[in-house]
Structures are given as C-alpha cells and as structure tokens.
Design a protein around this nucleic acid. Structure first.
Ligand SMILES: Nc1ccn([C@H]2C[C@H](O)[C@@H](COP(=O)(O)OP(=O)(O)OP(=O)(O)O)O2)c(=O)n1
Ligand SMILES: [Mg+2]
Ligand SMILES: [Mg+2]
Length: 469
DNA sequence: ACGGATCCGACT
DNA sequence: TAGTCGGAT
C-alpha cells in the first residue's frame, strides 16, 4: 500500500463495555447506564458510561452512587468478580470478537489507543500558540526540532503537510498479560497470609489467561514480573523466568520476591511496609512452535536478572530446588526475545490532543456533518452475515438496491453507509489537496460529529450471534 | 478510596 | 541487550 494514497479508517466502539452488557441484557437498551467495578465503596467506580447517561453529566471515574444522584434512573452493570477481584474477561472476549471480524474483512488492522487528552498535544499548542494542526506549517523545521527534538520535530513538520508514512501495524497481539489489584487504606496487605492468598489469586488469573493465549496464539511467556506498591509509596518491579505455566509456581515465585521487601522478621506473620498494590505480569512471548530449533540457531543469550540490593546482602533469582544446578545465579539463560515494534511516543499523544480540538470544531460544523454509527450488535451481524462486506456480489433481489444520488450507481441497501462514506472521504481528499498545495492559513478539520447519527438502527433483527457469556 | 491494564521510552 | 521505573492513556 502506497502511503501517499492510503486511507486509514478509525473504528472506535461507543461506550464499549456498556454495549457488551446491553447485548446480554437488551432490556437496558436506550436507558442510561454504566459499568462499574466493585460495589461496596460508594457503589463502585464507573469505567464506562453510555451516551444517555452522559447527558446527565455522568462520567467515567465517578462512583455509582454519584451517578445515581445525577441520574436517578441510572443503571449500573457490575464487572464480574473472581476471588474478590474485578475480572475483565467478558470485555476481552468481546474485543476479540470485534478483531476477529475486522481481521476477516480487512487486510491491515492495527489495535490503537486513541483517546482525548494528551500531554504532547497540549505542549505543542501551548508552545506554538496554535489551535489547529495546520497552523504549525508557519514554523520552520528548525524551530520545530529545537522545541520538540530532532526526531519528533521532523515528524511534526511532515505531519502538518499531510506527510505521514508510518506503516499500519498488522499485529493485534498484546505483548503482556497482567493482573493487578489495589488494596487501599485498611485493606492493605499487611500479613504474609494475606499476601500468600493474593499471590495465589493473581497467579490463578494469569495462569488461566496464559493457557488460553498459548492455545490461541501458539506462544509462551518467558518472563514473570511482579510489581508492588508499598505504603511507603515506592513501587518495585522484579522479574523472574517462567519455565513452566503453573499456578503454584507463579504464586510461589511472586511470594518469594515479595518476601525480600519484608522489613519484619521472617518468622512473624506481619509484613512491613504493607502492600497497597500488587500485580503480576507475564511477557517476553516466544513462539512455541519450533522453539527448540529457533533457540538452537542463536547462540545462547544470557540475561541478567537484576540483583536485589539491600543493606546486608545481594539476592539473586534462584530456583526453589537445586535441580537447575546453575550455581552462578548471577545469570540465567533465556531465548532471544522477539523483535519489538517501536513507534514515536509523541504520535499517539498528539492525535489524542487534536482529536479533542476537533470535537470543539464539530459544534460549528454540526449542520453539514454526519456520522456512521451503529450498535455493537449490528456491527457483528452486518460484518459476519455477508461473505464479503466491502465487495458483496450484486446477484441479489432488486428491491435491495438503491441508486446513489452522487454517482448514480446501484448500491446494495446495506452497503449504502459505506458507499456514502466513500463519497465523504473523497470530498475530504479534494479539500485537503486544495489546502495542501499552497501553504496558507489552515482550515479547521472537517469532521463528522457524534451527535447526528445516521444508521443508528438497533437492528435486533440482524442479530445472529449472541455471546454465551 | 480515580481501578485495571497495556505500552513505551529513558535510564542503567 | 536486559531489567527497572515512570509516564501516559
Ligand atoms: N480509563 C479507561 C478507559 C477505557 N476503559 C475501558 C472501558 C471502555 O468502554 C473501553 C473503551 O474505551 P474508550 O476510551 O473507547 O471509551 P468508551 O468506548 O467507553 O466510550 P466512547 O464512546 O467515548 O468511545 O475501555 C477503561 O476501563 N478505563
Ligand atoms: Mg473512544
Ligand atoms: Mg470507545
């Protein structure tokens, strides 16, 4: 794909977790609701809020109780809990469903995280006193590089001229699998017994997710990282190798690491300073097919697991039993890690910021804008019922066709939103070509609003797939 | 007591 | 190159 002529579509589900719940309980469709984690502390913390509820001022991060004050009819869905910890499996699975559909229908799909806010965007706006990205064109490459650094300045210079050739990544696989939990206030983990239990709970969740990942993606995590925050407010992260997927091994390894920060006597059950956040993460995935042969191809790589310094001694990671007679515990053998993709950190932040700006612009452009919006259920049905959504073959019944007013082509009814988008994109392109040819005052970016939704049908009749969960 | 989770760059 | 830490979302 030539980066000069490519079209990148951005797909972002509306209030995703809420829709996942509504799909399971359709009686709440059209009602203000949100998804919260936990309950006992002020009705739980909201992590997703639908648009009906946003109209009442309900926001992510609010407590369920506060949402009820703002919106008496507000309904709270609660995240499933397993062993007293929020478990996001339902949403991960739903997300995987979305990506299965996307991957089956598009050549190149990249998972991104585009959100409002963003420090880099703010810094640029502040520094250069601009509101729109195009206004940056009045600054020289030199000026941009002086303020933003050589790399980011160059990127920005080209970006403002419509030049951005970064490849779209085709990978969607996560690089880490992690499970963590806060233990605020009185709930802090201040005894070995409590810590042991939570090491086990987190280990179990990680294990389950790793096993599923191994089956689906034919790879194995090689590194376990334990992260904890103590009441002293310091955060510590330590890693150890994963030799085998096992709940007990994960739990025991985690516990062993944590014990090294216990200032109390090792015979006491009291743990000081207490733990207010505990997390386990698995990463450094390696393909499990041909692992042996691949490992043999490269000379053995030795990786040092950082020594843990305390005033008295230096402790290194070591196996429980001495089977692995690697007495030089300073070094352990790990296979060569997979190559990681690097991207400029500024990119995501920058877009995030200007996305917000765009939304401000939207209010001015309301009347001429439209947006293609549909429910999550219609997303699945539409993109799974047709063999080839984008180029569906025209051997269908006549009354399913409509004539496009712009190009007078006969278009399958359910392809009309996409077809219409084509014209929309085309118009944008023409406009952009005009403004790009000459460097002059920039125009606000023309953008679709979220308000006027066409194709917002909640087409229950199209539902042919329901989750089991 | 604004949680759980993921990614990435800087630093060493 | 590997592990740790912190920032960002
Ligand atoms: N701080 C956050 C942000 C998001 N999410 C979860 C819940 C969201 O439903 C999902 C998708 O994130 P979005 O930022 O896309 O938010 P929504 O889809 O909920 O809302 P919008 O309609 O604005 O996209 O990720 C979360 O748990 N914590
Ligand atoms: Mg969003
Ligand atoms: Mg969304």
């Amino acid at each position: 794909m030539n980066a000069d002529h490519r079209v990148i579509a951005l797909i972002d589900m509306d209030c995703f977790y809420v829709q996942v719940e509504q799909r399971l309980q359709p009686e709440f469709l059209g009602k203000p609701c949100g998804v919260a984690q936990y309950y006992t502390w002020k009705g739980g913390g909201l992590i997703a809020v639908n648009y009906e509820a946003r109209n009442f001022g309900v926001k992510r991060g609010m407590r369920g109780e506060q949402a009820k004050e703002l919106c008496p009819d507000f309904h709270v869905f609660h995240v499933q809990e397993v062993n007293g910890k929020a478990n996001l499996t339902r949403y991960r699975d739903a997300s995987a469903d979305v990506f299965r559909v996307l991957n089956a229908n598009f050549k190149l799909v990249e998972k991104a995280s585009i959100d409002e806010g963003g420090k880099a965007g703010e810094r640029v706006m502040e520094l250069f006193q601009v509101e729109y990205i195009g206004q940056l064109r009045k600054y020289s490459l030199d000026a941009l590089q002086t303020s933003m650094g050589e790399k980011d300045g160059y990127w920005l210079f080209n970006l403002t001229r419509g030049i951005e050739t970064t490849a779209v990544n085709s990978r969607n696989l996560y690089k880490t699998i992690s499970a963590s939990k806060n233990f605020p206030g009185k709930t802090c983990l201040d005894t070995i017994d409590k810590i042991r239990i939570w090491c086990h709970n987190l280990a179990e969740e990680i294990f389950n997710r790793l096993e599923k990942d191994r089956a689906e993606n034919k790879r194995r995590a090689k590194l376990l990282t334990v992260t904890c925050t103590l009441t002293t407010n310091e955060t510590i992260a330590r890693s150890c190798p994963i030799n085998e997927y096992s709940i007990d091994r994960f739990a025991n390894d985690t516990l062993k690491i944590l014990k090294q920060y216990n200032k109390n006597s090792s015979t006491s059950n009291i743990y000081t300073p207490a733990i207010i956040n505990l997390g386990i993460s698995a990463g450094k995935f390696l393909d499990s097919v041909n692992t042996k042969s691949i490992a043999d191809l490269f000379s053995k790589q030795t990786t040092k697991v950082e020594t843990i310094r305390s005033t008295e001694n230096t402790i290194n990671w070591q196996e429980e039993d001495g089977e692995e007679e690697d007495n030089n515990i300073e070094e352990k053998v790990l296979e060569k890690p997979i190559t990681t993709i690097t991207t400029l950190s500024i990119q995501g932040d920058f877009f995030r910021k200007f996305k917000k700006t765009d939304e401000q612009i939207n209010t001015q452009l309301k009347s001429e804008n439209k947006t293609t919006t549909s429910s999550i259920t219609s997303f699945f049905s539409r993109y799974t019922t047709n063999e080839n959504v984008l180029n569906s073959s025209p051997n269908k019944i006549d009354d399913q066709y409509i004539t496009c007013s712009k190009c007078h082509k006969s278009i399958l009814m359910w392809n009309m939103p996409e077809h219409d988008d084509f014209h929309y994109a085309h118009e944008l392109q023409m406009e952009e070509n005009k403004t790009n040819s000459i460097i002059k005052t920039s125009k606000p970016i023309k953008r679709k609003t979220n308000k006027q939704k066409i194709n917002n049908q909640t087409l229950d009749s199209f539902i042919n797939k329901k989750p089991k969960n």
